[in-house]
Design a protein around this nucleic acid. Structure first.
Lengths: 198, 198
DNA sequence: GCATCATTATGATGTAGGTCATAAAATATT
DNA sequence: AATATTTTATGACCTACATCATAATGATGC
């Protein structure tokens, strides 16, 4: 999102996080801006029974967890490294200074927040009123547009495990497995070698 | 959000919308920035069976539907006047010009988007993994902080009909009615004269 | 090359919340 | 004041998805 050179002018610090390491936790106050240099990060919530819901996955060059920096609020979810990852972070004060001093960055930040809000609006409507199959198709079509899924012979390869699909749609693995099989029969997608193509 | 005088410098136009009138529809391209002078607006989606999901209610001085203006995307939901309302709107081109020329407005826009993204993150996790009672309590607590609900003797008056509570949480009216009665028994809220207090 | 763990898979059973029907109370409209 | 509409309410029944059990397949590590 933001140029690394720019972040470095505001005393950015690099740090390595190991797979499964927690970056920040729900209900804590936001103290830093985080951007991914390499690796993958997910933001998630757990309900009272320990069931996980994934707010989203974040990849190289993307930032995450900024909203609370702009509000007097805590994080709405946890952030965890999905694989070994290198992050670059800037303190809240420096980050707000960076934004204030660089209007061009504000615009980037607006576009970024707008994109995420758009995704959440679409998925919120799906999750609350649509059935399992519909939710999954929506997730796939959205993921194709947002993540860097590759077009192969069979179509776009939806590079997510059944479990992750469930975590992103609020469904259980078994339901996902059954739903995508039905969708295959209906011709909405293809399953080749256990991989899902749309 | 944005000062009316500022909007007028960019050729803002005022317009009255009658109760139930549609302001814009899902899947259309965004052409204007909208801000409420008076009245109430809701953004909603309908699933295949015509069931409604309310993305949010918007009141005086608030704006809505900006994300697609910053992206090359269509609206993720419809916007409808809940009561007779007066809106002020600015064309997309003028709005982007306004943002570019007024860095202070960018910051306001960032805070605004951040707040809505925060709300959606909290509700997404609730809706996808938590039970009816939990979802409703979360909605109430969030609404108290965001909307202008008043503190009365019995507590904060949750000024939403059962139907609206359902539309915002993806639950049916009957489920809402039953859940809030159980919550009253559990002492989580009070119901006096059919009004809900928390 | 074997052990461990993650992922995909399938069947049986359970349950929260949806659906449908019906009605009383409150509010809006004429 | 009479009528229509909306909101709150309750009971009976139904269904989509969750849960639990069990296993085969594939990936990762030592």
């Amino acid at each position: 999102m933001i140029q690394i050179e720019m972040l470095e002018k505001y005393d950015a610090v690099r740090r390595l996080y190991k797979k499964s390491e927690i970056i920040f936790e729900k209900d804590n106050f936001a103290t830093h801006y985080y951007q991914i240099i390499s690796g993958t990060v997910k933001m998630n919530n757990f309900n009272d029974e320990g069931r996980e819901f994934v707010q989203g996955f974040f990849y190289e060059k993307q930032c995450f967890g900024e909203p609370p920096l702009f509000l007097e609020r805590t994080y709405p979810a946890n952030a965890e490294a999905v694989e070994d990852s290198e992050l670059i972070c800037v303190s809240k004060a420096n980050f707000l200074k960076l934004i204030a001093e660089n209007p061009a960055v504000s615009i980037i930040m607006i576009e970024n927040l707008a994109r995420r809000l758009h995704y959440k609006s679409v998925m919120a409507a799906e999750i609350s009123t649509q059935d399992a199959e519909h939710r999954l198709l929506q997730l796939f079509d959205y993921s194709i547009a947002y993540f860097n899924f590759k077009k192969e012979q069979e179509g776009f390869h939806i590079d997510l495990t059944r479990q992750k699909m469930g975590d992103l749609t609020g469904l259980r693995v078994e339901t996902v497995i059954r739903a995508i099989k039905t969708l295959e029969k209906k011709g909405e997608l293809k399953i080749v070698n256990r991989k899902v193509y749309r």
